[in-house]
Design a protein around this nucleic acid. Structure first.
Length: 598
DNA sequence: CTAGGGTTAG
């Protein structure tokens, strides 16, 4: 006799919210009655025993499906049931492949797929999406291509699900051209096919192309689904294109789109990355469910907007709300500390991460700590910290130290770290620039020039400064010293006006970072044409005077642009918000939100 | 039984 414990009133039927389980259970009403209110493994075993006695293969498959999909921990159990099937059905194979594709070890799919072929069972249109999903997770391009070939031969490649899965794996593996080729050849593109392609472009950082494709999508008269909206928000966040991000938000509101947790996270992230923290907070307040990703997006958003203290408060609130922080949360929390100069708080968080939250710090967490210590000027301590690390420091971490050396004008350490980094990563321009800055700040011009020459000899090009500004829904781009730009003529009077007003406000250009072997006047001239200043001039000329001027640039803010922008915000009485490659600067009334600490 | 999407150090 098999005894099944009667479920109590309070036990939660957790899987009933998941459509696949309801589907499964509806096919097997007996199982439904037994499993509906039970979530314990002993029940599972009892039911298993019961089914074995009844010799009902259908029930056994149903139990396999239940074990494979209800909880990742039950996958082993599912495999044991699978092994008892002789021969396993295509459905059993698919179910296990489906479970593996969502598990932490998707690579096992390949063995199962081969076993399937070995058993003489032909994969069907359900098999391919699962296998491809597993391979995507592993970035396994070649196996993916093999599966592609299989699907073509089997006549399944034109199935819309298989087709989208193929577009997805090619773009995840960086083979955008192949993904586009498939996309172009799609006969009746459904929305998911578009969304696979758009998200593929976004994933590869090809934001302009993604926007272009979305434009085509709209022309085709289709309505975006949630995935496309998330991809668009991600694009807006990367480009700092607030207008476009707001458009998506308006679309959501106008069409009564359900604000899912993913969509909410994407919106919060977009507002933070566009420098509009208030709107991010407003949205956060409206969200009914908040998981660790939502909280982390907000904490990191506050951090990059110079609200380190507020970010830490948020983190405490998250703990009080019973949400467990993950490894990414700690990156955000430590970033908040580093941008806010909160050294002690950072140390506490770093310790709490291990002790209280049982998370092993990864290289990025050590990197954050080096950044915290380095920015605070504790360079020797930062170096000792690196020496005591139980894992190998990476290039990014060393670069944080070099950056700190440059900030705090420590030539000895800067020279050592800079040379080491150039040796490690000779093709990266940033290392040369930082080292030559370190020399220039110490007025060691000859050394600075040597570094620049080595860079030139090796054909390493300095990434040109570029600033963008959104106006009337169009993103305008300005490059450093780009006098050939037709807009430059129009900007000229405003640039002169800026110069005049800056001078009368007592502004003195900071030329220590200009390395060219030229005289002081020329250096000042070079600084005037930094892309950021061109964009500000454009903003002052075109953007409505009650609106803040929002600029996104590709490099870190240079010292001169930073001090000049502070004064411009005062003498022109304009709020100027600049996003540099790692954080925000909110300039207002002559001061910056970063408190000159970036 | 199937495809797509959210947070991450400088």
């Amino acid at each position: 006799m098999c005894t099944i414990q009667v479920p109590t009133k309070n036990s939660k039927p957790i899987w009933l919210s998941n459509p696949s389980y309801t589907h499964l259970l509806s096919k097997h009403p007996t199982l439904l009655s037994l499993l509906q209110n039970s979530n314990s493994n002993s029940h599972l075993k009892q039911i298993h025993a019961h089914i074995l006695k009844s010799h009902d293969p259908n029930s056994l498959t149903a139990l396999l499906e239940f074990s494979a999909l209800s909880d990742p921990k039950r996958l082993d159990y599912a495999i044991r049931i699978f092994r008892s099937l002789n021969p396993p059905t295509i459905f059993a194979f698919n179910t296990l492949l489906r479970s593996l594709s969502a598990s932490n070890h998707p690579h096992q799919s390949v063995h199962l797929f081969l076993e399937m072929l070995h058993c003489g069972i032909a994969p069907n249109k359900y098999t391919y999406p699962f296998v491809l999903k597993s391979f995507s997770a592993e970035l396994a391009l070649l196996p993916g291509k093999t599966i592609h070939g299989h699907a073509v031969k089997a006549g399944s490649a034109s199935d819309p699900f298989v087709h989208s899965s193929l577009i997805n794996i090619y773009s995840i593996c960086g083979e955008i051209m192949d993904a586009l080729k498939l996309f172009d050849r799609t006969p009746n593109r459904d929305v998911v096919c578009w969304s696979a392609m758009i998200s593929g472009l976004v994933r590869q950082g090809r934001f302009r192309e993604a926007l272009g494709l979305f434009n085509e999508f709209q022309i085709a008269g289709l309505e975006p689904n949630e995935s496309i909206m998330v991809s668009l928000l991600c694009t807006s966040a990367h480009l700092g294109a607030l207008e476009q991000g707001k458009w998506v938000h308006m679309y959501i509101q106008r069409n009564g789109v359900h604000l899912s947790i993913k969509l909410g996270t994407a919106l919060i992230n977009m507002y933070c990355k566009c420098g509009v923290v208030e709107d991010a907070l407003k949205l956060f307040g409206k969200m009914k469910r908040r998981n660790v990703l939502v909280w982390t997006a907000l904490i990191s958003g506050l951090a990059i907007n110079g609200m380190g203290r507020r970010a830490l408060d948020m983190y405490q609130e998250m703990l009080r709300a019973g949400i467990r922080p993950d490894s990414v949360t700690f990156v955000a929390v430590l970033t908040a500390c580093s941008h806010g100069g909160l050294v002690e708080e950072a140390r506490e968080c770093f310790d709490a991460m291990r002790r209280e939250h049982r998370l092993i710090p990864k290289v990025e967490h050590y990197g954050c700590m080096v950044d915290v210590l380095g920015r605070a000027g504790l360079l020797n301590e930062a170096l000792d910290f690196i020496k005591s690390m139980p894992i190998e420091p990476d290039i990014v971490l060393w670069r944080a130290l070099l950056n700190a050396c440059s900030m705090h004008r420590n030539v000895e350490m800067g020279e050592f770290v800079g040379k080491f980094l150039i040796h490690q990563d000779p093709l990266y321009d940033g290392n040369y620039i930082l080292l030559s800055n370190v020399y220039a700040q110490a007025k060691r011009w000859a050394d600075a020039i040597v570094v620049r020459n080595i860079m030139k000899e090796r054909g390493v090009k300095k990434c040109p400064g570029c600033s963008t500004i959104e106006f009337n829904g169009v993103v305008h781009e300005f490059f450093v010293g780009d006098k050939s730009d037709p807009q430059f003529k129009e900007l000229r009077p405003m640039l002169d006006e800026m110069s005049r007003r800056l001078k009368s406000a007592g502004y003195v250009p900071t030329t220590s970072e200009v390395l060219l072997d030229i005289d002081e006047d020329e250096k000042q001239e070079v600084l005037c044409y930094h892309s950021e200043k061109l964009a500000i001039a454009f903003g002052l000329l075109n953007i409505d005077s009650i609106m803040p001027i929002r600029i996104v640039k590709n490099l870190r803010a240079c010292v001169d642009c930073h001090s000049a922008t502070k004064i411009i915000s005062m003498v022109f009485d304009r709020e100027i918000i600049v996003r540099d490659r790692s954080r925000f600067h909110h300039f207002k009334g002559g001061a910056c939100s970063c408190q000159d600490f970036w």
